[in-house]
Design a protein around this nucleic acid. Structure first.
Lengths: 184, 184
DNA sequence: CCTAAACTGGCACGGCCGTCCCACTCCCGA
DNA sequence: TCGGGAGTGGGACGGCCGTGCCAGTTTAGG
């Protein structure tokens, strides 16, 4: 009857992907509550039933959207860091679409109540730590890396939510990076 | 007609407080979406219309509940730190009701989309920083304090959402506190 | 004591929600 | 070529939502 999993036919696979993208967009725009079957279908220019045809439930749709968002953001950040360096991350946060990342954090927190999402949340953290480890040329397990990540993470979220003046964030970030640099 | 503000009469003021408490409870239990007029009224053993009588809208109710939650949590943590020290904060996180704090963070992130909540979110951050400053006997503006807060904050949220093994959190927290201690 | 304001509580409207259902069309493989 | 499963789409059901309405009741203050 209903696949709810990778659909066998080409057109179906494309449709599923379209729905997922629409879900991610809505998530980033209106957050969480905006991701309804109807809204997703409308955004994807597909009939309402398509959403229940390709996804068992709204929860599954949300989970997959979260996973996709995590994936996308991680690669975006990786590119940015490669191009501009870790120190400039503060500006990246200010530059990039706030809502996009607010949606990510919204789901991240929600993951605390949902084991399925929790797994994806861990992937997000691991990915960020990994990224910082690469930048610092240190193993991901090292406390220095881990601690720098915690600082980056909070500054990031704080910037998104509270929109404090940017220069303070920049300063703190610079200090934290300095502290975390290997003694050589 | 409707006060929507501090009600003049005693009974009314009590009722309003009851509704607020009920809202906080629901927020912590089911998160965000669980705070509906009907649910709050039911929880407070009051008729549905009481919620619209004492609060202009659901948004206002949520905002006040958030403010109360922030207030409560801050004093709780202050007490804990005074009694057990900053290092033991990791155990506090594990001990205290997870859902209660998940609700707080949920609203914190949501504050990124709502200017009214944003103000309360800033109060939360400021309160935490202040707390750490007191513990370290240093001015709240000092980068050391600020940076220690970022670490504590992330470890806290991470513990709540991802439920990683506790000892790693404890270790990292200890290192961070060590780093942040004044050189003397 | 009595009147106006504060408060109560039941009710209903309109809307959006997730999900299910079913007749229909298309396209792949035998 | 043709049968059947994959895919489609329109509609409907039951439920919960926020909010407005209003006749009734209580209570403070003159």
């Amino acid at each position: 009857m209903t696949p709810h999993t990778p659909p066998p036919q080409e057109r179906g696979r494309r449709r599923r992907a379209t729905l997922l993208t629409a879900a991610v967009d809505l998530l980033t725009e209106g957050g969480f509550a905006a991701v309804t079957h109807r809204a997703v279908a409308r955004r994807a220019h597909l009939p309402l039933a398509a959403t229940t045809y390709y996804f068992t439930s709204r929860d599954q749709l949300l989970a997959e959207a979260f996973a996709q968002l995590v994936q996308t953001e991680l690669t975006t950040i990786r590119t940015w860091i490669t191009d501009h360096g870790l120190t400039a991350l503060a500006d990246q946060i200010a530059t990039t679409d706030r809502h996009r990342q607010l949606g990510l954090w919204e789901l991240y927190v929600h993951a605390g109540r949902d084991p399925v999402l929790q797994q994806i949340a861990r992937r997000w953290t691991d990915g960020c730590v990994q990224l910082i480890a690469e930048t610092l040329h240190q193993p991901p397990g090292h406390p220095r890396v881990r601690l720098l990540y915690t600082t980056v993470s909070t500054l990031w979220l704080e910037q998104l939510v509270e929109q404090r003046p940017l220069d303070e964030t920049r300063t703190l970030l610079a200090i934290a990076i300095e502290n975390a640099s290997p003694p050589t």
